[in-house]
Structures are given as C-alpha cells and as structure tokens.
Design a protein around this nucleic acid. Structure first.
Length: 138
DNA sequence: GCCAACGTTGGC
DNA sequence: GCCAACGTTGGC
C-alpha cells in the first residue's frame, strides 16, 4: 500500500473540518498542478496519507484514507484536472516541520525539498519514521 | 511581512 | 519551442 501526504492551509481546509466530514469524507479538489495530479492518479482506494497543515502551523496532524480514486474535478474549467475523495482516519500527535527537518533519515522527503507540492508521495520508511515520531506503532 | 522557489503565461 | 516576466505558495 502506498502512502501520501496531503497539504492544506488550515484557513482554507483544516483537520477539524476533515474530521467533521466523517466517514463519507470529502473530495480533495482545487489541485491545479500536474505533478500533484500524477500522485492522485496513482492512488488506490484504501491508501493512507498524512494530513499536513501548512503556513501557520507547519505540522502533520492526522491520517486520512483514500476512499475514492481519481475522477474529474467538475470545478476545473479546463477539464485537465481531477480529484480523489479522502476521509479522516485518526488524529496524530503533531509532528512539526522542524522535527522532520531535524531527522537525518527524512532529509529526502518531498516535504523538505519541494514544500510547495500540494500532494506528495511518502515512502514506507518515511511513513514509519513519522508514525514513530508521533508516538504511534507502525 | 519578506523573500526564495516554483509553475505558468505570453511574446518572439 | 525558448525564455523572460509574472503570480502564487509557503517557510521564516
């Protein structure tokens, strides 16, 4: 199973709203970047990802699960982009960007090197390390 | 609030 | 098809 990282500004779409969306989840729209699109197209139902708050908070705050694979985003007038549906799985003890940058094993994470990408792949090793940092058992 | 990095746009 | 200019994002 592949792992991902979904990035959102808390002011636009926060973890609290993600949790409030419940088991039916929500669509992850608004992506207008081809690299991010590529990641979403590779997602499978049941894949899990970190939910990251950018800007003010800069921390991973929860885990989400893909519940619907890639489909067209009807709000995109160009018709080039699509979206997936995700639901909140569980909150995590926040792992901050500073903590991630302080961990040498995570030096190659996309979040560290290309922080502007809104949907990112996470390797299995990175997934386990961050779960451990959040005090979770992998 | 500033600035660096990246993506996109548009002129040629 | 190249590249400069511009806009946006996000860390600090």
């Amino acid at each position: 199973m592949a792992h991902w990282l979904f990035k959102s500004e808390p002011a636009t779409w926060s973890w609290t709203q993600m949790v409030a969306a419940g088991a039916k989840g929500t669509f992850w729209n608004g992506v207008r970047n081809h690299l991010a699109k590529k990641q979403m197209m590779a997602m499978q139902k049941g894949d899990r990802g970190f939910f990251y708050h950018s800007n003010e908070e800069r921390a991973i705050v929860g885990i989400v699960e893909v519940i619907k694979t890639y489909y067209p985003d009807h709000t995109d007038e160009s018709g080039k982009f699509g979206m997936v549906d995700v639901k909140a799985v569980k909150p995590l003890k926040a792992v901050s960007l500073a903590q991630i940058k302080n961990e040498p094993k995570l030096a190659d994470m996309v979040l560290v090197n290309n922080s502007r990408l809104s949907v990112q792949p996470v390797t299995d090793a990175e997934w386990r390390i961050i779960l451990a940092m959040a005090g979770e058992k992998a």
